[in-house]
Design a protein around this nucleic acid. Sequence first.
DNA 1: CCAAACTGGAGAAGCGATCTCCAGTTGCGG
DNA 2: CCGCAACTGGAGATCGCTTCTCCAGTTTGG
Lengths: 221, 221
Amino acid sequence: MSRRIDPTPSPEPHPSPLRADAERNRLRILVAAREVFAQRGLDVTIDDIARHAGVGVGTAYRRFANREQLVEAVFEEGAEHLIALAEQALTHEDPWDGFVQFFLATAEDFAGDRGLREAFLEGLHGKIRVAAARDRLIPAVSALIARAQQAGQLRGDLESTDFPLLQLMLGAVTEHSRTVAPAVWRRYLVLLLDGLRHDRDHPTPLPHRALDKDEFDQTMA
Amino acid sequence: MSRRIDPTPSPEPHPSPLRADAERNRLRILVAAREVFAQRGLDVTIDDIARHAGVGVGTAYRRFANREQLVEAVFEEGAEHLIALAEQALTHEDPWDGFVQFFLATAEDFAGDRGLREAFLEGLHGKIRVAAARDRLIPAVSALIARAQQAGQLRGDLESTDFPLLQLMLGAVTEHSRTVAPAVWRRYLVLLLDGLRHDRDHPTPLPHRALDKDEFDQTMA
DNA sequence: CCAAACTGGAGAAGCGATCTCCAGTTGCGG
DNA sequence: CCGCAACTGGAGATCGCTTCTCCAGTTTGG
């Protein structure tokens, strides 16, 4: 740990400005981590991230003592976005549409960022920050649910802890079909929504065709 | 490879009867594998299985060259049961009830046997046999779906490849909530079924209470 | 220009699984 | 009930993979 003369014994912020090249590399590592986590999930090695960033492993380890820190740094942004989505959905005029919009938007985030999904839904790493982010998300989700229930559109027995589990279910599809049919999850999202509506006369048409035999085999393999 | 005088150069069946103690141990290993796979999934080591069977690792390796063989041997029975369930469901008088019964029964099988779920839904091991079993299951599932659709009870746009993916979704819940609330999956099963019905006036009451905060945190961690 | 800060990547160290080997034990045909 | 082939158990060799350290060489900035 390098530090210059730093009178304030503040615990958190950068203890001392990094040298220009060091700071540049720190940023490259962060960017690389974002990309690699998003594409390949949280289980990549620090060596992978370093290589992708074009720096040596040593450099990566000097800035981030372990993968945990890297995960949390990258994760923070994703979490922020989810919270923004919730608040935006609450401003939606129609309660049901707001709920659907939020469900869809978060599912899209998770589909586009494997690492985010794993951090949020699989509890793989960085537990502390993740739990904190989830806690910040809960009130908004509860409000979204309550509002749609009061409007008589959403089934009354859905509770706020159900929501992440529904995302987990969808996430399982997303994960497995990732390489074969990266958008089939939308099919099951609509199916879930049809289960969540209070009542309905007809099924909502499913937005993505079903997997054919080949796609199916690959998805399950 | 031990073999006595065996005139027929048959490729597959037991090349020679095992000595009594050897056969006894083979069975113990098989039983142990069944139990360990069911409880802890397919990712257990052969050492674990051997220990659970009360034999040495060497003995286990002598009978089953690799875990694959062990998985397939154990898996076969589970697959057989699923197929029986499908055929039984087809005899159900009411098409919708038959469909629901099959969905429920398979989900129960998967919930009670982690290894079976992983073999069938996660494609972790023993690909050949599993694919074969799935193929045997498809016609029955298709029939079950078609019948319920013709009766106007099941949504018309559901296809047979959708079914295993629905099980996959449910399986994600089962897996995560395993230790905390081993039956919450029933809640989401009903929710899915409400999405699968052609039309309905009211939501079907959910059969299991939602997770509370503590259970939820553990499930996601 | 030079001292301090920083870099890269070879390789040490650790971990956990698979699989082998063989000295000792057991089953069984004669 | 003898003798030997078949079988057993488990210590440990081997492997593959990751994490993390170390330091000779390079870069930065006052």
